[in-house]
Design a protein around this nucleic acid. Structure first.
Lengths: 105, 105
DNA sequence: GGGACTATTCGACATGTATCGAAAACACCC
DNA sequence: GGGTGTTTTCGATACATGTCGAATAGTCCC
């Protein structure tokens, strides 16, 4: 059970996740890319996405995804890992994530 | 050169509709209610929705939906009618609208 | 402890959005 | 043409968002 940065990271209960927040979070290409990479490759540290934005911007996107209930974050040494809450999201909004990501763009 | 209010109304081609814009447009409860009412009752004039917002605010929402490619507007006398572009949207983003609206909230 | 690595927070800035009331544009009817 | 009904446009306001660089905080290793 990791300690440390865990304290500052809170995750909403899936029952309290709002559709507005999920849609707003997915209405951004960078964040959709993050979700796609999590689906494709599983858990991933924040620094391993190689996206063309500043680290601070990426941190902002991870926070948006986390507060929207789309990802869960946990610390592993000096890295912060990201997990998709896909099963939970599919109970809350069935098919939403896969439908949104089913588009090429 | 179209006559009257038609002149100011332009609709994007369905092929040019962007997922970002659709998701942002649907990430608003008032606009989702508009879409729901169009699905339930078919074409409807702007003034017949009875939503608790000012007319100018409603006009802003209709413009957002129109520019996102979600509705089409045409004039009928002194009223402006709204039609859902559901078939077109389903070819562009299959199942997206119905999946988003499948939630109670 | 000191250094290196990882990630977040903090200003700052530009842009977008939801809202309103008032004013203007458009269409119908007498 | 004048009055009435419908919708949009125009400011104005308050708030949110995406972006960056610099500074800060947490963790590991020597």
């Amino acid at each position: 059970m990791p300690i440390g940065r865990w304290a500052s990271v809170s995750h909403p209960e899936i029952a309290e996740v709002e559709l507005d927040d999920v849609l707003r979070a997915l209405a951004d290409p960078t964040r959709r890319t993050i979700v796609r990479m999590l689906i494709a490759d599983g858990d991933r540290a924040c620094g391993t996405f190689g996206l063309p934005v500043a680290a601070s911007t990426l941190s902002h996107h991870f926070r948006a995804l986390r507060r929207a209930g789309i990802i869960r974050q946990y610390d592993d040494g000096r890295q912060r890992m990201n997990t998709l809450r896909l099963d939970e999201l599919d109970t809350r909004f069935p098919g939403l994530v896969s439908t949104v990501l089913a588009t090429s763009t």
